[in-house]
Design a protein around this nucleic acid. Structure first.
Length: 418
RNA sequence: GGGGGGGUGGCAGAGUGGUCAAAUGCAACGGACUGUAACUCCGUCCGGGAAACCGUACACUGGUUCGAAUCCAGUCCCCCCCA
């Protein structure tokens, strides 16, 4: 890719490392220079929030809007009923329509932080493909669209090929996923004049199908663009951490824990993440990412602050940083730590056992694990190591709010209701 | 429809009558080291119990046996080959 894009959007995307492949970079560049380009990214409605794994797509839409174009966040209300076979070995569990709608509502909350929705020319819109997929007539669909796809070609796509090569089953239901996604693109082109579909590089096949179908049915030339599959420097997938997925919704993951995730970025990833997930100038990102030794910690704090500000607001970012400072540098108690409130009924006259306390605080999954933690010396109560798993904690101690620590990094506050 | 192979812990994958809560690797967690990084090293890693120990578990249901993840029968599911 030696072409130097002239449009602000592509220029930004290229220098920040968002681009993996494009069907026609030059043509797309021209379209972007000629006016508002509506572009879409599809999102599954399999969970009630999005996590860091989707953040690269979200940031891309944000840049798109910022540079004068129209983001379309397509909700896969219809396709989620099928499940995208890409990158999965096993068939996905089917969700009910109600659950899917709940999920869409949750996801919208995330987008509201990053995009401006509305009726204006560059305002974002959020259609749901159930609107058109739910009422498709099977025979009509086969006749009108099915004839544009050959099995020969479909078998060459990675999403299908990999499944077959690994001798994993691929149901006919899932096999149809790509037809429906292609149909989505065509439909969005009709409804919104959508000219670009973006997505992760695993979506390449699906995107190309949509482009072909749109050309055949609508006689429109449209474009496709993919982002690199994001992995951390250790090769692991982005978005998962010790305690599970890094959710973008605050009710699924506290701002403090979110901040911590970014603060713990490895050295090698810092510069890359700054470019992808913050809006700091590229030169600044590169300068920060090149810092060495302990100095790079400053860059990580900036990264955490910037990303948290986008996701949860400046206030939350500041509070998270202050708490981190308190907890890590002074060994104190930050008031922004995840807090667990116990009901008075959780306590007996003698109080509650430390083991139960750790379980209730969500720092460990079972009492067994809590005991292990204690035996290993990783469990602390107000920074004092717990030696005996039989220790009871009195109600008075908790009433005053108590700090639990599991290891050096995971902390929680516990207090009593009322 | 016929023939063959297989279903084991979060995943991968050993184990083919007692010594199996089940090798090994990955992931995860705690500790040491450090910079809240990486690397390395040590430890832990089904549930309950302070512990001795107990309970559940090797697809499901029954059976054989003093004793089963391991043998037998049936059921469900998966894969391969042939038609």
């Amino acid at each position: 890719m030696t072409y130097k894009p002239k449009s602000e959007f592509l220029h930004e995307m290229q220098t920040r490392g968002f681009l993996s492949d494009c069907t026609d970079l030059e043509g797309l560049d021209e379209a972007l220079l000629n006016g508002v380009v509506p572009a879409y990214i599809g999102f599954d409605a399999t969970a009630d929030s999005l996590h860091v794994g989707s953040l690269i797509q979200i940031m891309m839409l944000r840049w798109l809007q910022k540079t004068g174009h129209k983001p379309i966040t397509l909700m896969g209300g219809g396709t989620t009923k099928i499940g995208d076979p890409s990158g999965k070995d096993e068939s996905r569990q089917l969700l009910t329509a109600e659950k899917i709608n709940e999920n869409i509502a949750g996801i919208r909350k995330v987008f509201d932080k990053y995009l401006t929705f509305g009726e204006g020319p560059t305002d974002a819109v959020q259609p749901n493909n159930a609107e058109w997929l739910d009422n498709l007539n099977y025979i009509d669909f086969l006749r009108d669209y099915g004839r544009h796809f050959t099995i020969n070609r479909m078998l060459t796509f990675d999403s299908v090929k990999l499944r077959l090569e690994r001798e994993q089953p691929l149901t006919f239901l899932e096999f149809n996923y790509m037809l429906l996604q292609a149909y989505d693109y065509m439909e969005l082109n009709k409804r919104f004049g959508c000219l670009l579909q973006m997505g992760g590089s695993d979506q390449w096949g699906n995107i190309v199908n949509g482009i072909d179908l749109t050309r055949r049915i609508n006689r429109q030339t449209v474009f496709g663009l993919t982002t690199p599959l994001l992995t951390k420097s250790d090769g692991s997938k982005m978005g998962k951490s010790a305690s599970g997925a890094i959710w973008l919704n605050e009710d699924k993951l506290s701002a403090y824990e979110f901040w911590q995730f970014w603060r713990n970025t490895s050295d090698a990833d810092t510069g890359k993440f700054l470019k992808l997930f913050t809006e700091l100038p590229v030169a600044e990102c590169e300068r920060l990412g090149a810092l060495e030794g302990a100095e790079i910690n400053a860059a990580k704090i900036i990264l955490a602050n910037e990303v948290t500000t986008l996701a949860h607001g400046a206030e939350a970012a500041k509070a998270a940083e202050a708490t981190a400072r308190e907890v890590f540098e002074k060994g104190g108690v930050g008031d922004d730590l995840p807090t667990v409130t116990l009901a008075a009924s959780d306590l007996s006259d003698a109080g509650i056992s430390v083991v139960q306390l750790f379980v209730k605080a969500g720092l460990v999954k079972s009492g067994k694990e809590a005991k292990r933690l204690i035996a290993e010396g990783g469990a602390k109560l107000d920074d004092v190591a717990v030696k005996d798993a039989g220790t009871m904690v009195s109600g008075e101690a908790i009433a005053a709010t108590i700090k639990l620590s599991a290891g050096k990094k995971r902390h929680a506050l516990v207090k009593i209701e009322g």
